[in-house]
Design a protein around this nucleic acid. Structure first.
Ligand code: FES
Ligand code: FES
Lengths: 148, 148
DNA sequence: TCTAAAGTATGATTTTTATCATATATTTCA
DNA sequence: TGAAATATATGATAAAAATCATACTTTAGA
């Protein structure tokens, strides 16, 4: 579904949402280590996200990445659009041009309601809300913290 | 979600399910033209599917591919397993090792029910049933037949 | 004011996926 | 029995995605 790039981007941003603040910026190095993602790839991604105002950054010592209040108002969907492009959810599951109710493919009936629901969720919920819920529910972002 | 390979494979098989029979085999050439997929790529895929008993074939003039009664008992899930491997549905949406309810990622709550239901549908319904439903409901497999 | 710690910019490489191409083996039918 | 139609087998190439690397810029703090 999503590219690695998008997955890393989402995880980084949710990570920043719970762990960073304007007073506590986090460097790519640390993010990459915690999330166990390739560092330079992540650096590139974070640049792109910064350019698109999805995350904030500061150079120099004690610099790093963090989420501003505005950044927290963005959605998962904004991230996906930024990295993978906005077509992710209107593509047909079987690769048949566009996905719509007029020309449904055989998988449409089962797949489509879910796509709609997920898209809605990703579009309507803010990063901030996601982060808050994560804290409540105790979800996981890194492999390290998994209970295995 | 699925690779092009899997998409082509599924579409070919559903196509064969409604258009072919032991008495009416169809050549790669025709399948590829109708589905508008790259011919040699499809040829390779059909070979793999044949090897794995998901489709049947015969060489020589009037040869081609078709679905036997047994082939029709297979599921979409069998196709996906054959082409993309069986991990497609237990991977975490955010790339966090495995997807399970014990160590949910932040997207798990919204994504997981969907994955479960689709997997179930893909596993439990046979190709034959899919084809029958398609005829009833009038779904589409090729770009050509789309109402645009 | 210098140095080190960050991000920024850009391009090279590797890996995976998708696609193209070509030679071989069977089989029907004239 | 031989030519044509088909699948089969295998390898080459191209395109896309992921990863690695390197040089540059800014800034805090000694
Ligand atoms: S048309 Fe194929 S998933 Fe909607
Ligand atoms: S754990 Fe991430 S989708 Fe289930």
């Amino acid at each position: 579904m999503l590219s690695n790039a998008s997955k890393y981007a989402i995880r980084s941003i949710l990570y920043l949402a719970t762990n960073s603040s304007e007073d506590h910026k986090i460097s790519v190095k640390v993010i990459a280590e915690d999330l166990e993602t390739p560092q330079s790839f992540l650096a590139k991604l974070l640049q792109q996200l910064t350019t698109n105002k999805l995350v904030s950054s500061a150079k120099g010592p004690h610099g790093g990445f963090y989420l501003s209040a505005k950044n927290r108002k963005k959605s998962l969907w904004d991230i996906i659009k930024c990295i993978d492009g906005g077509e992710k959810f209107n593509q047909c599951f079987l690769g048949l041009s566009e996905c719509n109710d007029v020309n449904p493919c055989p998988a449409h009936a089962i797949v489509s309601p879910f796509k709609k629901q997920i898209l809605e969720n990703f579009r309507d919920k803010t990063i901030g809300q996601y982060a808050d819920e994560s804290l409540e529910k105790g979800t996981y972002l890194t492999l390290k913290e998994l209970e295995i």
